[in-house]
Design a protein around this nucleic acid. Sequence first.
DNA 1: CCGATTCTGGAAAAGGACTTCGAAAATCCC
DNA 2: GGGATTTTCGAAGTCCTTTTCCAGAATCGG
Lengths: 293, 293
Amino acid sequence: MAERRAAPEKKAAGRAAIGYAKPRSYEELRAVLSSGTVHFPKRLRQVAIFLWQHPGEVALGTIGRVAEQAGVQPSTLVRFAQIFGYSGFSDFQALFKEHVKASWPEGRREGAEQPDPAESDPNVHLVKGLAAAAQAALARLGESFEPSRFERMAEILAGADLIYLVGSKRAFPVTAYLSVTLLQQGVRSVLVDNVGSSAHDQIGCVGPRDAVLAVSFSPYNSITPDLVAIAHERGARIVAITDSTFSPLVPLAEMWLEVVEAEFAGFRSLSASLAVGMALAHAVSARRGRVSG
Amino acid sequence: MAERRAAPEKKAAGRAAIGYAKPRSYEELRAVLSSGTVHFPKRLRQVAIFLWQHPGEVALGTIGRVAEQAGVQPSTLVRFAQIFGYSGFSDFQALFKEHVKASWPEGRREGAEQPDPAESDPNVHLVKGLAAAAQAALARLGESFEPSRFERMAEILAGADLIYLVGSKRAFPVTAYLSVTLLQQGVRSVLVDNVGSSAHDQIGCVGPRDAVLAVSFSPYNSITPDLVAIAHERGARIVAITDSTFSPLVPLAEMWLEVVEAEFAGFRSLSASLAVGMALAHAVSARRGRVSG
DNA sequence: CCGATTCTGGAAAAGGACTTCGAAAATCCC
DNA sequence: GGGATTTTCGAAGTCCTTTTCCAGAATCGG
């Protein structure tokens, strides 16, 4: 197979220009195909057209089936894939599989969209409203996320001897889930849950080598700031997840992240906080793994 | 990937064992699985749950990959397929392929998606991925929500003397938030939190006028089913939020809702469950207000 | 019109996926 | 508690899929 560069003055005769980098995604492949700069001979063009029109068949079928439907020999498909730099059809097919898989769970739109008459049902309205609010909060999270601050928080937590998780009322589910997750990942942590009103005593045991992750949302009338203040006095490193710069946690914390939750019908979602929390857990566990592994 | 024809005279092994005709479509399979009349041993149940929750993976993957993701041996998948009367996994897989292919409209044209340059930061990727997964789960929730079942659950809970909230591990944050919310709304409830290992004693106090709201996700290896079973014996009304028809809570519950959470990097979101939980809390409180006000 | 190059088709080899099977483990039942 | 049954595991075997390869056909250029 002789190498030839895309000749500028050539009429792009015959041979497809292999000057193209191997497409790494289905979208890239489509872009290349639609650019029109590649001129294929008859059979290969047939292949390109079929791929374009029936990506699902390509993803789900065998080379034999695809070849049959496209009206070519299996070996033609292999050659086509190799022109784009793949080792063979299997490699090439993975692109399609990935694409279909990626758009499967969420892209499931079955049947025609009917204007839902049940929308007037107050329950449906409530659930959809709560879901929409949570989605909005998650979308904002994706936009306003600050990687460098997140990074610092993860570093602080990963460097701690023991991680204390503090959060009450609304914030408690977040710390509770964090506790479950961190323990599953083998990261030692203490959930300050105030069982037996022992929260002050629990937090009274923190030392300079420990870290506290505090979660709190407005109104800031819980005992969380008190507990964090104690930990602060004892020299622990403090990081926080909260919903405004006016939170009493902010002056105490070495680093903090702002996560604004959405509200609907008086109920606040926790989705964004949970997502950040999970990401933190993962980041901490990853750093720990590196150190102790 | 080997695609092989059904051998004509194979011994139709387990088929008689459960007496089900071979499902001819994916929908039929789902119907049989959800009928709840089939009782699988542990590994086969694991398979059923995975098939239920990840049809895309089954359709696109090889037997090896699917087995790995489901946490079983490849041969287990073959046995599962044969129980339903198929000659092997390939035959069975064709069902899934067809289903995926059918719900892939050919004329799909997606807009140009530019990859965010900051996306390469692993932290950003993680947070955005978790957020996207949660959003997907919430979107699904909006589509598959069943108002009538929700209504019944709210009625049951509203009519109860005392509401017991049961959930452990991952599910605990959901019940915890429910507890906070219900108490705020003036609805009497008990969070069964197993502090002091007193969960069995707590649940031992339920009576026929009480209701239990249980939350559990796969793998169903927590103590939640045990506790619910006790409550069931004592005549309490049971409702559940869980993620498949194979949950041990389903046979115990008078009414249940399926909420499938999304997963990313091994972390499951709780967004959809929390949204449903909040909606339930609101609905219950609204009904109570009507009665007692 | 003829030579050189490229493209195509088909068969054989290589590779991998699926299936089968028997022993070990777990579970059930008396 | 012990035997019988069911279930699971793991590896060997079989078959299909994929790839490679080359001769013949088609096309391009002179």
